[in-house]
Computed example of a mutant assay.
Amino acid sequence: MVTLELTNGEVKEMIRDEAMREEFIERMIDQYNQQILWLAYSYVKDYSLAEEITQDVFLTCYHKIDTFRHDSSIRTWLYRITVNKCKDCLRKKKIRAFLTFENQKQENLVIEEAHPESIAFQTMEDQLLSERVLSLPTKFKEVIFMHYFEEMKIQEIADVLGAKVNTVKTRLKRGRAMLKSMYEEGSE
């Protein structure tokens, strides 16, 4: 897979030309679609809603790519847009009905790859871990997700969340402690 980690000059050049701009957006979708979908799902805990948010993120990128300031990576910018859209969505009262634990259990947690025949089945342990991470308060699950599932560096997470590095470190530590206590309670 071709990566989108281009220099700022290359990105600026690509988004000026309409044909190159569309190709750039298509490459961005191919590369980051699943990651954005999982990030959105980790917030809203509703697969259909996460898909809508993912589409909205890329639509926003298409219309606002020329406002990209190049002071972060494309991935960081996409994650920031996703986090903002998720938070906006959660603020709406009618969406809160989707956030019960029962709805989470009924969701299909398996996300299809680009080809239907390449569906990845999660093991029971992966499913249990996913449920436990999703049950954490938002400020802990977002850093756990970005650090462990997306392998983002702490500075990158801080940039996405608009938080201080020490805040991210503290949330990671507390989130890990919460998960550890969940596992200890489950083994008794």
Rank of each mutant, 00 (worst) to 15 (best):
T3I: 11
L4M: 11
L4D: 00
L6Y: 12
N8D: 15
G9K: 14
E10C: 09
E18G: 05
A19H: 12
F24A: 00
F24N: 00
R27F: 01
N33Y: 11
Q34N: 13
Q34A: 12
Q35K: 13
Q35V: 06
Y41C: 01
K45A: 02
Y47G: 08
A50H: 00
E52T: 09
L59F: 14
T60Y: 10
K64N: 11
I65Q: 03
D66L: 15
F68D: 02
S72L: 03
S73G: 08
I74R: 00
W77H: 02
W77F: 04
R80K: 13
R80T: 14
N84W: 05
K85C: 02
C86W: 01
D88F: 05
C89Q: 13
K92M: 13
K93A: 06
K94V: 12
A97M: 15
T100A: 04
K105G: 03
L109P: 05
P116F: 04
I119Y: 05
T123N: 08
M124D: 10
E125S: 10
L128C: 07
S130I: 11
S135L: 04
P137F: 05
P137C: 04
F140R: 07
E142Y: 00
Y148S: 02
F149V: 09
E150V: 05
M152N: 03
M152T: 05
Q155W: 09
I157C: 07
L161N: 04
K164P: 03
V165R: 15
T170L: 14
R174V: 11
S181T: 13
E185N: 13
G186Q: 03
